[in-house]
Design a protein around this nucleic acid. Structure first.
Lengths: 352, 352
DNA sequence: ACCATTTGCGGACAGGTGTCCGCGTCAAGC
DNA sequence: GCTTGACGCGGACACCTGTCCGCAAATGGT
């Protein structure tokens, strides 16, 4: 009985040498088993496997990675603002990388810590770095240059418009163009932009799409669309959407359609409109962006743009594996994902 | 001019020896500078720092961690279902750990991969492992035993009821008790449970709280409360909530108050009720759990329980740092966080 | 110019792993 | 009983860093 108890507490083993002593074999032999090299008798293989199961021994990864030429790891830097779609991308990406034998080092970005994060990645000798989300463009560009200096491939997911960056992103211009076309078809001619400034470089892509749709029908951005972004602080997106709409409702002639940067802002906008007695879509239309699950639960369900997470990650993995194999591409790669309009009941014919 | 161009492409440096050759110093001297040892002339320190900035060299972390006794890293295993509150906990925890000089290895759990994940943590020689969220109890217990076998401290955040586990969690029993009391005060005597089975072990804590509140007023769980969880598949929580409520509405006398497992289910429930013409809170009350931002945007705003993320992480860090200093505690630690009821307009007086 | 002190050098070792290689051992086949 | 493989052993080296130590060189003071 007591022998069983003793067997139940196997010794703490922290090196292959120690483990080999436990099994009663040479260290090199054990190493050969662990790395599945040929020329081993089945019985000894079994003996090692059994001891492995008993003790739960794991070779020190740091020593392995130190020895081996590559680390088979990629760094993933995550935007501060953690929304469901971003997280879904993270989870999917990590799982796919795992399937390819890659370990992922995940760091959540915090303002001013991007340098620390990249240096950590570099010290861990990652083979590539992925950025997911939106960052400060200037800061990101510096980091990318830093990585290029070390000949480490990178990939930016979602943040379009960084010079020389390898990018995979939803075609937000096309998305906005399609959305505006949808609203134009419904008779809308006045647009309130929520979270989309007319000038700010970070949202330029969306503006391009909006402008293109308007121009195709002989309309002008400046006269059709307005934005009050600068006048409201953006802390939580829901409240931001509310505040922006309240500002619009102070106008003599509020717009008939609202285009929001994302679903959260759109939902806040709907709330403020309905609280003010404006019916949706009877008196105003509202559109979101991202197609989060919550959209279908609103009254009315929110018209929005689907993020296409799976295609995005699929393409991202293609670009990534190509770079892991062949190194940094000579010219930056830009792959855009086609968006898909999801029309629900928050958009309707313009009030005449 | 060309010399400038040449200077712009510093050589790829991947070891301290190489770097020392570049600076023109001995490897040991450089190492002393990097580790801030005394007895160095300021001018040589500057020389190294300058070269450091030029080349962006970073010592190989694997070699350092191999040499040093501890790795100063903790593993974080994340629940598959990524909701905003969980993510907030992750981000906060990682930031705090970073502040304490600890690196965090983050892995998103995928069914059947918990073994792989833990083995990865072990091979990286993490000094502790944190689980955030809810997992398969049996699987989690095996992992915890595995960790204990290696003398590695652990901490489970949110998942209450794992035997021998060090746990930090919201007191969900107290929360449900307070919530039911609130509804009893409003005159409710019939309760529909959404996502909370009467028997299932994983939700036993909530049931205990509900039962306690009822018992204090001489009421009985079996007669007051019903649950149809088994009859509806749970894929997306929003739709789950909708489906459950539809099932309840088939009854001759649907309950006057609905207690949902989380905010998503509650929101789905509200949608289904309102679509069926049931006014909230006039004809039925609905409560959520977690107090996500979206709650305030609903019509009516959702009564719910706040997660208390900051206190939770604060306590988690206390427990964690204590274990990192002193090793596994002799007896499992259980710290519960006091919940806070957030009463909004989705609950009201029972219809008479 | 001389001596004492600071300061950098270079060799050595440890930490754990993967791999190569020569050598011993054991069993099977003839 | 001898040869021939098959198989395991153990020494050696490399990967890169941190640290210790003896020693040489440079520095500073007088």
């Amino acid at each position: 009985m007591s022998s069983i108890d003793l067997k139940k507490s196997p010794p703490r083993i922290s090196s292959t040498a120690e483990f080999a002593r436990y099994v009663g074999l040479a260290r090199t032999t054990v190493s050969r088993v662990l790395n599945q090299q040929p020329g081993l008798k089945q019985s000894t293989i079994d003996r090692v496997q059994r001891a492995l199961a008993e003790t739960g021994f794991t070779p020190n990864a740091h020593a392995t990675l130190l020895k081996g030429k590559g680390t088979s790891s990629v760094g993933i830097c995550l935007e501060n603002l953690l929304t469901p779609p971003i997280l879904l991308k993270l989870a999917t990406l990590q799982q796919q990388l795992r399937g390819q034998g890659y370990t992922s080092l995940i760091e959540v970005y915090a303002p001013g810590e991007s340098r620390t994060i990249i240096r950590h990645f570099l010290s861990m000798r990652v083979e590539a770095v992925v950025f997911i989300g939106h960052f400060d463009p200037a800061e990101l560009e510096v980091r990318l240059r830093e990585l290029a200096g070390h000949n480490i491939p990178h990939l930016v997911i979602d943040h379009h418009g960084i010079p020389h960056a390898n990018t995979v992103t939803l075609d937000r211009a096309k998305a906005m163009e399609a959305m505006v076309n949808h609203l134009l078809d419904l008779g809308h001619r006045t647009f309130g932009l929520l979270g989309i400034p007319l000038e700010h470089p970070s949202r330029l892509e969306r503006i391009h799409g909006i402008r293109a749709a308007l121009a195709a029908r002989g309309l002008d951005l400046q006269t059709c669309a307005r934005s009050f972004d600068a006048q409201c602080p953006r802390v939580h997106d829901f409240e931001f959407g509310q505040a922006l709409v309240r500002r619009f409702l102070e106008l003599k002639q509020p717009p008939g359609a609202y285009l929001a940067l994302n679903d959260e802002i759109a939902i806040g906008a709907m709330r403020a409109l309905q609280d003010a007695g404006v019916s949706i879509p009877g008196q105003a239309s509202v559109t979101g962006f991202n197609n989060q699950d919550i959209c279908t639960m609103m009254a009315p369900p929110l018209t929005t743009v689907d993020q296409q997470v799976e295609p995005t990650i699929k393409v991202a993995m293609q670009v990534l594996t190509a770079q892991l194999r062949n190194g940094m591409p000579a010219r930056p790669v830009l792959r855009t994902i086609a968006p898909e309009l999801v029309i629900r009941q928050s958009t309707g014919r313009a009030a005449s």
